[in-house]
Design a protein around this nucleic acid. Structure first.
Lengths: 249, 249
DNA sequence: GAGTGGTCTAGACCACTCA
DNA sequence: GAGTGGTCTAGACCACTCC
């Protein structure tokens, strides 16, 4: 987890954002305290006010800062700063929480897409895709079932060993196939565990599960993955939604 | 639902964003098609390139556009354009989906905060707060239970009639108390319906429910509401997470 | 090489808040 | 009225993509 801080290649505003976040996480200024004004920061760091504003905007999007017209720029409460607005993979999320994530691969195979999956991935039915079923664990205990349908580039494939090495499907897709997830559409609801699911997750049949369906899009907005995830009731999915910002007034 | 389009008071970039969105929703350019370049838009609308960029940035945040370095700016697939990244109230969400939302108020009272709620709202235990319990309905059928603890300004209160008039708690808080929700922290999981919950929601006891806890923060990042929501299994909570954008490289 | 978006600057004026 | 962030401009140079 390298930071832009001190990275001479990164844009100025990212370097500044990284620096500011570092001092804020270091405890200064405290929550709900003023930052120096944009003009002052520009002078102190010897850059234009617009560049400072870009850094502040970035930190605002990450929930680190908030702005109050005419009053100033303030440090957000720690509870907000710690919650990401962005999509994490299961393993990245676990790493951030400081727990150990793992997986048990149940199956990895090439299958023809059925109509439902083909529709969701915007491909022709019967086109072959990769299906990956896994049990996800946290500190060794099973917490979720992932059933993923992957629309990989022509001829691309990977083995169980490839996946076991990296631990993260997204890392594998990026490093191996050059596919960068850029956007995710998710739908969450509650379901009852089937007998089979219950066995995998070590809960009683009929136990409540959190179901999360996700379509992942690449940078060019091609659907590259459709995934159904089911989690035991102790698992929590957290999100931060900021600025009830609207295009409509 | 007024738009910035043609609103002379709105900033230029908002007017442009509204115009662009209107022509895109009108079908031109189609999904995954090029927009004119930033320089061309600037010339055509007689504004600076930076102002055009602000409009495009806004539309990108709303999932209407995406940008590909060196290639151009493109219209996102309709599936992405329709999904909001921002927090909606139950009633606003229903309106957007074109269904009729309603509520049955179970109780509205002043209560002392217990330790858990006081901690979440950052107030002293035993301070009195407003508790509101409701059944939420869609097209007349019960789909959710809301249990909200409100940290209203000193002396502020409202009646059942006030709430029944507007239908939306957020609208009431904004118009009546000047509190604008600016940020929400949410945690989702699955639970089993208790006997009482099952009766309210017209499902069997033990049925799976989607539980969503939310802390809502005001513009100045004061916790103004803690709410526990439980939804029947047919209810779906949808989100869009864009740009796996990171502060860390 | 031509065209695209990404970064950066220096300066101007406006809207809002607070004393 | 002094200080804050919000908008807008005109121009410069860089990084990337595609032919």
């Amino acid at each position: 987890m390298t930071s832009d801080e001190g990275n001479q290649d990164a844009p100025l505003y990212r370097q500044l954002a990284a620096q500011l976040r570092a001092v804020i996480e270091g405890g200064w200024p405290g929550p709900n305290k003023n930052l120096p004004s944009e003009r002052e920061l520009a002078a102190r760091f010897n850059m234009s006010r617009d560049t400072v504003r870009k850094a502040l905007k970035l930190l605002e999007e990450h929930g680190v800062l908030y702005v109050d017209q005419g009053r100033g720029t303030f440090v957000a409460p720690a509870s907000v700063r710690q919650m990401s607005r962005f999509l994490d993979s299961f393993s990245a999320d676990a790493r951030k929480r400081g727990v150990q994530s793992g997986q048990i691969i149940l199956s990895l195979e090439q299958v023809p897409a059925n109509m439902a999956v083909a529709g969701l991935l915007s491909i022709e039915p019967s086109q072959t895709i990769t299906r990956l079923q896994r049990i996800r664990t946290i500190d060794g205990a099973p917490v979720g079932l992932h059933d993923a349908y992957l629309n990989l580039p022509d001829g691309a494939s990977f083995s169980r060993a490839d996946l076991e090495k990296t631990g993260s499907l997204y890392t594998l897709m990026t490093d191996r196939f050059g596919i960068t997830p850029a956007e995710g559409l998710e739908s969450l609801g509650a379901v009852s565990a089937s007998v089979e699911e219950a066995a995998h997750l070590n809960v009683a049949a009929g136990a409540p599960l959190l179901m999360c369906e996700r379509i992942t899009l690449s940078e060019r907005r091609r659907a590259v993955e459709y995934c159904v995830m089911r989690y035991v009731s102790s698992y929590r999915y957290t999100t931060r939604t900021n600025k009830f910002s609207q295009l409509n007034k």
